[in-house]
Design a protein around this nucleic acid. Structure first.
Lengths: 357, 357
DNA sequence: CTGAACGTAGCAAGCGCTTTCTAGGCGATA
DNA sequence: TATCGCCTAGAAAGCGCTTGCTACGTTCAG
């Protein structure tokens, strides 16, 4: 029924060992023999049995890319870029570096994150790329650290992309972290420079590194400008929610209820910012004349929003591609295994000086 | 170094066969024995060797989801929904239905599509879900048909989602096709009802089923209204390009150059429509007062666009979830293996009657 | 009280490939 | 011309797991 190595060997009149060596190309095989084997492979339309191969060789060509939300372009762009570097490249098909880059959607759930890691461990994955913010829960962090350690032990290369390094773990081969703090700080500084004093903040989900770092950047800027009220005041100006449009909409309404005299709203990311804009418009407020709005990430649609969204650009594609290369061992890890990726302020039309500046 | 089944068996004082049966749960094992085994599994922190298991069982728990562009929410939403139904679900971890749902990004390249299919075939994937439009190239179609036939032969279940059925192939277990023709027709009818007569069309990439079907729907509506010029005229009113923002921008400029008196522009999808809006605005045209714009898909951001985008809603999440269930065999295939999924017109603010009646 | 039937566990034969070790053939060196 | 060493190919031993078959109690019907 299904063609095996032995069938190819028989047809090419060589031993299975020779066929294997031709296919893997890491052993000298005479040109004439190789050609005979390749011809047999083609004629029989032979496809290697991955499990058998992985079992015998104790490694596989699977590379997993974990994302928090596959429907979010933030992750899609990084994952796509990484995948480009890793595998599925065109070519004759039996080349060496051929890897199966697959993306796994955790949906932000810690259990699924762990489950996927186990599944990848089962498959003896060659590498794993973890993208996006991590959950800041001691229990989960410990579980992740342990899991990653076992994976690394088994030879799986671990790369972090857009996620802060795991302190005290040497399992991670390389970590590419975004400068969320710096970006958040510069964004709010921009608002403050424009003259804003009462700035609301729609934060991401609690206990996520990304959420915390961006918020810290924001508060650093506020504090530096002496706009830092007491803790209660800070809480009043902040609403947490998931990274989606709906959250931006609802949180903005809530913020307006708490502080009707807000002159600017900073959102955790662009998607949330769009929701905020919708809420503001529904309240009859004009952007940026009545109120300024800013996002984060600079996703492709942000420049086309009306008005064009002021945001912080993250080089998602470049970071994803680099993570992919790191995972393939095609690029040397940065010094110390850690690199911080700069975030650039993109001042556009959704922010302007407050009305009575 | 790494823990094997035999280690667990030794610790639980049973045979490897028994451990295997406990883990797979498809054979009667006494409760006391099962508990002893499970305890040993936990104590040893045993993780099944996927390749070995797949080799022996001749199947794997891998399910591949192929998408054309992972950075596009159109695919992200479907893939995420499918993945939800397929695997990575929380739970104790050793349950039966545990599958590894992975998404593979072809980038719209036929070679990569085939490559991924081969890679999935290598892994003896349990199922494959192909999403989005297919390339309409005889050579590629033949190659795909052949490849899918081999996959199906090997026991891989094939499901199509948002892609028309493969004529004359019985390899496909189920095909979920969107009513792109009907949606395209109703959208253009809506515009014609509003009074538009000169309508430009920004089509997707040539030789794609999705592109062709949507365009056919559009032209059917035009013809029915007697707005169907000669072939040359039809070509003048149509510009092809990729499914991205940039294409919408450039194509719109081109359309305006060819026909400055256009009163409406229909885009191949929402992303393209946003690019069209940007181009129009840059030309000083107001939407919808000066010109109407319509998209397709009803992606989440479309309702938040300014003005809110008139478009055609495709139930992406529901379709993806159904495809996932079909792939898992959790749902019976539709009669004949083929189901057409309705597309609903969402008339919003980006379309209005043309200026002079 | 005996034999069939059932429930439970072990034995052992692979699954298809990789890789170490071995062996044969040959040209090169002395 | 004889010896050494290199190049190439084959034999065979697993890799860790699944599963058909067998074996050993027990229980239950006859």
């Amino acid at each position: 029924m299904t063609v095996t190595l032995a069938d190819v060997a028989a047809r090419a009149r060589v031993s299975p060992a020779t066929v294997s060596r031709v296919l893997n190309g890491n052993y000298p095989v005479a040109v004439s023999t190789r050609e005979r084997v390749l011809r047999a492979v083609d004629e029989l339309d032979y496809v290697l049995n991955g499990p058998a191969s992985s079992l015998a060789a104790a490694t596989s060509d699977l590379v997993g890319i974990l994302v928090n939300d596959i429907a979010d372009p933030f992750f899609g762009i990084m994952a796509g870029a990484a995948q480009t570097e890793i595998g599925g490249q065109e070519g004759t098909g039996r080349a060496g570096g051929e890897k199966l880059a697959v993306v796994c959607n955790t949906g932000g759930s810690p259990e699924r994150e762990l489950t996927y890691l186990t599944l990848l461990q089962r498959q003896r994955a060659a590498a794993v790329v973890l993208t996006g913010g991590a959950l800041e829960d001691p229990g989960h962090t410990a579980a992740m650290t342990a899991k990653l350690a076992r994976l690394a032990d088994a030879g799986t290369r671990i790369v972090l992309c857009g996620r802060p390094p795991l302190p005290g773990s040497d399992a991670v081969a390389a970590a590419l972290a975004f400068d969320n703090r710096g970006g958040g700080r510069r964004l709010t500084e921009h608002l403050i420079t424009l003259g804003h004093r009462r700035i609301g903040y729609v934060a991401g989900p609690v206990e996520r590194t990304t959420t915390r770092h961006r918020l810290e950047g924001h508060r650093t800027a506020m504090a530096a400008a002496g706009l830092c009220g007491d803790a209660a005041e800070r809480e009043r100006l902040t609403v947490h929610g998931p990274y989606d449009r709906r959250s931006g909409y609802d949180a903005t309404l809530e913020l307006l209820r708490r502080k009707p005299d807000l002159t600017a709203i900073v959102a955790a990311n662009d998607t949330v910012a769009l929701g905020a804009c919708a809420a503001l418009r529904d309240q009859g407020l004009r952007i940026p004349q009545d109120i300024s709005v800013a996002g984060f990430d600079d996703l492709p649609f942000s420049v086309d929003a009306v008005p064009a969204l002021t945001t912080v650009r993250l080089p998602l594609f470049a970071a994803g591609a680099r993570a992919g290369r790191l995972a393939m061992g095609k690029e040397a890890p940065p010094p110390g295994g850690i690199a911080t990726i700069a975030a650039e302020l993109m001042a556009r039309d959704s922010t302007a000086p407050p009305r009575e500046g």
